[in-house]
Design a protein around this nucleic acid. Structure first.
Lengths: 133, 133
DNA sequence: AGCAAAGCTGACGTTAACGTAAACGTAACG
DNA sequence: CGTTACGTTTACGTTAACGTCAGCTTTGCT
């Protein structure tokens, strides 16, 4: 079975981050590794959270945004008010993400167009060079 | 017809940015407004570039990345080496964007799942409250 | 016991992308 | 002709997200 806990080095290797990053995320209350003496032990929960954190970052969410969203993913026994707040927050982020997706599709299409133009220009230049030889 | 040039205020209002931002982009060679005396006049080209800049930012590209990409969009008479470099750069960014899109779709699906779970919890809580009344 | 590797806690440094404030030019308006 | 509004340059300030370094335990190995 997947080890119950990981030390800081295993975490770093697994997720491609530095120790500093993990400690930083802890101070920001994004991760809650348990302690064995002084040393941090990262649980399955921490790994799940870190995965979501890194994903969130790729979409341009701030760590603070992410921290609040993680509440939705890891709320087992939240109060109604809290749960409802997280839910609204998630709704707004979902809207963001869907807007981002639409724009991304546009951008991809445009980029492809530009690249096609570039290809033509390059082909043209190649033809000229070939003719000159 | 759409005015040939815009002053700084019109630009800010149109794009929702501050004057500082536009001046900053100019120092970074992302925009090249012409001058009427001291004052900046932004051309159609500047507007097109700014639109792409803001879009790029939404996808998490750095201003420096964006500056280089703009070369592809505004290269009329580039040399082959330069054009080819821009083309490769664009290709890599396109790959990034398509990867991002795939991940985004995943994330959206996951988020929806979590929200569905949240909805159930909220409905459950509402039922309990209703029963208690 | 000795010593290096791995971790820890501050604390200060860094980069990107602007914000903000001071000090000045100039152009229209009453 | 004063002042109000808009624009400019120069320069220092700010925030997020870590990097880096110093100095101190703890752990494993020999």
């Amino acid at each position: 079975m997947t080890n119950e806990t990981m030390n800081i080095r295993e975490m770093c290797d697994t997720f491609g981050v530095t120790p500093r990053t993990l400690r930083f995320y802890e101070t920001k209350e994004l991760l809650f590794p348990i302690r064995e003496g002084q040393k941090r032990l990262f649980t399955r929960r921490d790994r799940a959270r870190l995965k979501l954190i890194l994903r969130g970052k790729r979409f341009g969410f701030s760590l603070e945004d992410i921290r609040q969203l993680l509440d939705l993913y890891h709320m087992n026994d939240g109060q109604e008010a809290q749960l409802s707040r997280s839910y609204e927050l998630a709704k707004s982020h979902l809207a963001d993400m869907e807007a981002q997706k639409a724009e991304l599709e546009d951008a991809i299409a445009e980029m492809k167009e530009q690249m096609a133009w570039g290809e033509n220009r390059l082909a043209e230049l190649a033809r000229k060079k070939g003719a000159a030889a």
